[in-house]
Structures are given as structure tokens and as C-alpha cells.
Design a protein around this nucleic acid. Structure first.
Lengths: 212, 212, 212, 212
DNA sequence: CATGAATGAGGTTTCATTCAT
DNA sequence: TATGAATGAAACCTCATTCAT
């Protein structure tokens, strides 16, 4: 499943003229729009170009192929989520464990839920790409930030901070995706953040309490 | 994403004859094989038929179209996972909370990790279908089983057992998928089950301790 | 110029049904027709399919891509020419040198001029293919046949029969192509065969007369 | 193949300024480079312009379209070859037949083999153009020069000098191309010139000896 | 004049589905 | 009933050419 896929190529041209800048932006936004409105199976280069108000040829001036385009959009999305988490983690340094968890969970939920369907759709297309390296690299940033934060907790010390940070971040994804994929009700969504806090805090407190 | 899709058609023929049964099985296995070996974008009806050792025509005798086939395969996979969880839950009735969690987590991890890549690939194609109702229905069975189990816990009572069961089941998926998608090391995989236990037990104990 | 090119793939399906046989034949003939009527730059798979009276899809059932199709047509043409030469050479064993030359030249000119424009067009497309191995292999057959013939000449012996055979065959191509490419008049074409005889016979007699 | 094609347009601007001259030269060289490095099917105007260090727009200032460019490059190449032959022919006036042949063959082989692959590639693109008139016109110059030379031969007279000159020049192309297209060994290439001499001299001597 | 972004027709190829055998 | 050849819409991508800057 990995061997078949070529590494996702990068944009082929850096926009030097201002006209270009507007065009790439339009293509970028159009990709997300088509993904949301039409679904991943109807996401074609022609439709993206049409929605962006440019011709297919123009699209291919900036992205050498469909994969490159999708890769760029996915990266942009992941970066947005991870930077939100990074910032939250940084702001919670030296806070009590419960406050740390609340800060990170709130940031994560806010970022993820902000564009609920966008996230959904992007995870779908990620499968067609060889997105593993990208996802891994960006996740790494989240783990590093959360690890650094946990190490400053005044009321908890961990045997394996890295592992705890990994589980912390990964745990948030489970119920989030479950609600997205299962089409949960607004009432359920309202409970997501507090429940995630409970989930992660319960875990971290257990791990902090463990005998070395 | 949902409005566009017609409800997934059902198999058009119930396998009453043993020959039919064998054919359907072959098609099932072939679908998964092609998905794993060639990837979702190369999953074509002709390739499935070839791998199953039948003709395309025959395939279309059993499934009116590609969606119906994928839906059936996905359902078959989900049922296998959920029934494992159901059985584990049933067998842990009246056990202490920690034992319950261990039973369910072990069953879940065993079932999920058994066909690691199969699960991955199927979730991918699930996006192309209108699989939400199916996923919701089958998840529901898992929640019901876990809810029933939790209600018999001798050492814990929950304010909202249904919600706790939901979070419990959903939480397991987060780190599991994270490891699959991120291509974790064997060492990491070895820690999955105990860590999931800690995660879920920490959560459930917190929730059980809460004041009503 | 060689490294860029993948080896021309072979037909992908052997026609087992009689309907298939007719289809491949039609596609084959259509390719030549389009090449002649429209020219090599207008030779598209769609046009070939249309002319063959089938759909593009059908064309691709028999040839995995355009190159494979062109390769097959080129091979067929070359085989026709070389087998004509082979037969002529075989029939002239033990004849006097002049008769040998006349036999081979006449056969060559007849085969080449038979489909003048076809030969032209095919040499053009050959450049887009990696046709070198094919051309070399088939030329080899011609050289072998002519070498064998020359060795039986009662009135001439050669220092290096292989080289002489090579030059003999290659020499015929020069004026032939010149007339084709230069668009010679019918009067010129009429002189081709006798002139080629003179050319080749002059050469071979010189080489036979040389001191070892 | 001829009726479809409009007469190849001429360059739209004569290089009077030195900057223009340099640009035209750069475009010429770039065309040949792209042809050799990327192949005729990847010979695009943008690639030529890039390699020449100018913009497409500039390229179109000098040549109204791609055909005009290719025509100009082909003409430039052919002129170089033919002028070599002309010079050799002129220098061999009044020499014995054997010396004439040697002079012309050596010049031809030197010119052709000098840019072996260039010649090959150009003949390929020539097919896409309506290059027949051009090729004929330039060949004509070669024939005229050789005819003039042959008429001064002190040791031979020909019934139809024009025809003999035509065959002489055309004959050289056969083995030359055969070696290029067949990818002959260096040993074979070393024998090309002497063998061509033998071929052409044999022919011319036969023709000179013929009874009127 | 030079530039290079934009165009869009057209080329190659794939694949779900049908239907004559 | 099973077969697999045939279909053709539709996907991806390229490239000669134009024209606003």
C-alpha cells in the first residue's frame, strides 16, 4: 500500500506575479470547496479549476498533478490544527495538570470542529496519497509540544513523558472521529470537550501516580 | 456528502445454494485482497472478479453495482469486530471494572490488529459509500453490549452509562488508528493494549467517582 | 534517446473468440489507414478506434497503450519485407552473382514499393518507439539470408561475406528512401530497380575481385 | 500526407540586430538540445524557450509557430551538410573517378557522423512538416554539384550523369542510416567510409563502362 | 519589446456496467 | 446461468498559442 505510491510532489511554481498569488489561493480554496460540496469521489481537477474560475491548464501550472494539490491542502490543514495545539501547550506550561489538559483539549476540539467536514474529507483523501510521512512529521510536532508542556507540570511527574504525550494526543482523536463519522447530534458534540478532558485527565493522573 | 448518495443497495441474490455461497465468499476475499495489494484506487470490479476466479458478469449477478459490493464487505468486517467486542463484554458481566476494561480492550485490540491493514483500507472505501447509517448501527450494538456490561459492575456506578460506554469504545480507536496510520514500531504496538487499559480505566474510574 | 523509452509492450490479450479476431484485425488495419490518410501527427487512439468501428475501450483491451499498437504494426510491416527478401535469397542459391542481385533487388523493391506511403509513415512512427531492437532483430534475418545466398555464388567469393551482405541490403535502402522522401516522379521510380541492381552488383563484383 | 499541410511559414523577423542574432542562435541550439535530450515527443515550445534562456513570447516573436521553427532548424542542418558536399565536389573537379568518390564520401561521412544523433532526430521531425520541398531543393544542390564534378572526370563518361549523381548521393545514405538506426559498433563505423567508396565507385565504374 | 500566466481543445487511458453468446 | 468483449463517459494531463502587464 505504500510501495505503489510515489512521494507527493510539491507545487511546481512559486508565484512571482501578484496575479499568480490570487490564482493559487483560488485553486486552494476551490479544492476544499469541491471536497466539501461534492465529496471526495467527485473531486476532479476540472471541477476544481471550474470552481476556482480558472482553466485546467492553469491548475497544472501550479500543481504538477492531482496528488500534489491534495497533499498541499492536507498539509495546510494539519498545520493549522497542530499549531493551535502547540500554542495551547506553550501557554499552559507550569499550569496544574488539569489546566494543561483543559487547554489542549479545548484547542484541539476548537481546531478540529471548526471545519468538521473539511477534516473528514481530508482524512479520506489522505488515504489515496502517501500521506504517512506528512502525518507523522506533523504529529511529531504536536507530541514534542505536549511533551514539553507535561514536563513542566508542578503536580505530576511521568515515567515516560513521551509515551504519555503520544497517548494524550492520540486519545483525543478517537471520540472526535467517532462523532464525525457516526454523525453525532449537537447534544453529543457539546459533550465532546468535557468528556475528552475527563478521558485524558483520568489517564494522565493514573500514569503520574504509577510507581516507577 | 450524504445528500448525493443513493442508499447502498443490498445483494440482489441470497446465497441459498452452496455454489453461490462459495462464490460470494470468493468475491469477499478477493475484494479485500485487491484492496490490500493494489490499493483503493485500483479496486475495480474486473480485478475483483479475476482474483475471485469468476467473470465480471457473475459478480454483477450477486451485487447490482460496486457500491453494494463494498457495502457488503464493510458490513461483514464491522460485524466481525463488533461481535468480538460483544462477546468480550458479555463474558465480563459482574466482573470488577478493571477486569471489564481489560477484557474489552484485549478483545478490541486483538480484533483490530488482526487485520490491521484490512481495517484501514475498508475505512477508506467507507468514505465513498454512504456508510454512516451502517457504521452507526453496528457501533450501536457495541455500545449496547458495553453499556449492559458496565451496568453490572460491582465496584462502580455511572451517571450516564450510555455516554461512558460510547466514550470507552470510541477512545480505543484513537491510539489504535494513530499507530496504524503513523506506522508505529513493534515496540509501540506492544504497549498499545496496556496503555489503552490505562486510558479507559482512568476515564471510567473518574466518571464513576463523580458526584451525581 | 533510448533511455527515455520503455520497451514497447506487447498485445495484452490473445483473441479466443472469433469476434475478437475480427476486432484486432479491424484495429490493425485502421491504424495503417489512419496513418496513411491522416498522417502520423493525427494518428490518435480515438481516430483509430473510430475507423475500426469500435470504441476506444475495445482498442485498449487488445493493446495496453498506443506504443504497443504502433509496435505491432511496425513489426508486421518489417516482417513482410524481410520474409520477401528471405524467400528471394533462398530461391537464388547457387545462381550467378548477377542473378542473385537481381532476385533480391526485385523482391526488395516490390515489397517496399508495394505500400510506399505505408513504409514511409511507419518509419516516422518508429522514431517515437524504442524500435531499435525490433529493427535490428529483423534486419538480422535479412542479413543472414543474404549471407547464406552469397556463400553459394559459383562466380564469386568474398573476404567478409557478412559485411558484404550487410552493405548489399543497406545500400538498397538509400535510393529507395531518397525517392520516397523526395517525392520522385514515376519515371524515376521506374529506374529504381535496375539502378539498384547496378549499384549492388558493381559493389559485390569489386569486393569479389579484391585480393585477400 | 502532403495535402493536409500548409506551406511551412518563414521566420517573421530577420535578425538585423546583433541581439536578435544571438537570440536566434540560442533558439536553434536549444531546439536541437531538447530534441536530443528529451526526444521529439517532448519537444515543446516552452521547453525550447527555457533552454534558450528566453520566454515563449520571445520565441514567437521570431517564429510564428512551431512548424516554422522546426523548418528553419531543419533547413539550417541540411544546408550545413550539403555545403560540405558541394565543397568536396568542387575541390575534386578533374580528378580521377576514384579520387572524386573518395572526396565526396569522406566529406559526407564526416558531416553526417559529426552530428549523428542530430541528423537522426531532425529527420524524425521532418516528417511532421511538409519538408518535402525543402529536402528536394537542398538535395538538388548536392546533385548539381556532384553532376558538375562527374562531368569533369578524365577517366569516365556517363550516359545520364544526373541519374548517376543522384544514385551516388542517395546510395551513401543507405548504409549510413542503417548503422545509425541499428546502433552499429565502432568497428562497423570504422568501415563505413571505405565500404561506401567501394559501393559508389563500383557503381560509377559500371555505369561509365556501359555502352551508350 | 519581453514576459510568462492563462487558455482550452484534445490526447491517452481507465472502468463500471451491459448483453449477445 | 456464466462469460467476457464491448461500450463510452469521464478522468488526468499536455501544449501551442495569446495577450495583459
Amino acid at each position: 500500500m505504500a510501495a505503489r505510491k510515489a512521494p507527493a510532489p510539491k507545487p511546481r511554481k512559486t508565484p512571482v506575479q501578484s496575479r499568480s498569488k490570487a490564482t493559487v489561493d483560488a485553486i486552494f480554496q476551490a479544492t476544499i470547496q469541491v471536497l466539501l460540496v461534492q465529496g471526495s469521489s467527485r473531486l476532479t481537477t476540472i471541477r476544481v479549476a471550474e470552481r476556482a474560475g480558472v482553466s485546467v491548464g492553469t491548475l497544472y501550472q501550479y500543481y504538477p498533478n492531482k496528488q500534489a494539490l491534495l497533499g498541499a491542502v492536507l498539509e495546510w490543514h494539519l498545520l493549522r490544527v497542530v499549531s493551535t495545539v502547540e500554542e495551547a501547550a506553550r501557554s499552559a506550561h507550569h499550569a496544574p495538570l488539569a489546566a494543561m489538559v483543559k487547554a489542549v483539549v479545548d484547542a484541539y476540539v476548537a481546531a478540529k470542529m471548526h471545519d468538521v467536514r473539511e477534516a473528514q474529507a481530508l482524512y479520506r483523501v489522505a488515504g489515496e496519497l502517501d500521506a504517512v510521512p506528512l502525518i507523522r512529521a506533523i504529529s511529531q510536532r504536536g507530541h514534542v509540544a505536549v511533551t514539553a508542556m507535561l514536563e513542566t507540570a508542578p503536580d505530576a511527574t511521568f515515567d515516560d513523558v513521551g509515551l504519555c504525550a503520544y497517548m494524550f494526543v492520540a486519545a483525543m482523536a478517537g471520540p472526535s472521529r467517532a462523532m464525525l463519522e457516526g454523525g453525532a447530534s449537537p447534544a453529543m458534540f457539546a459533550m465532546l470537550a468535557p468528556q475528552l478532558e475527563s478521558l485524558c485527565l483520568g489517564y494522565l493522573q493514573r500514569e503520574a501516580a504509577r510507581p516507577t
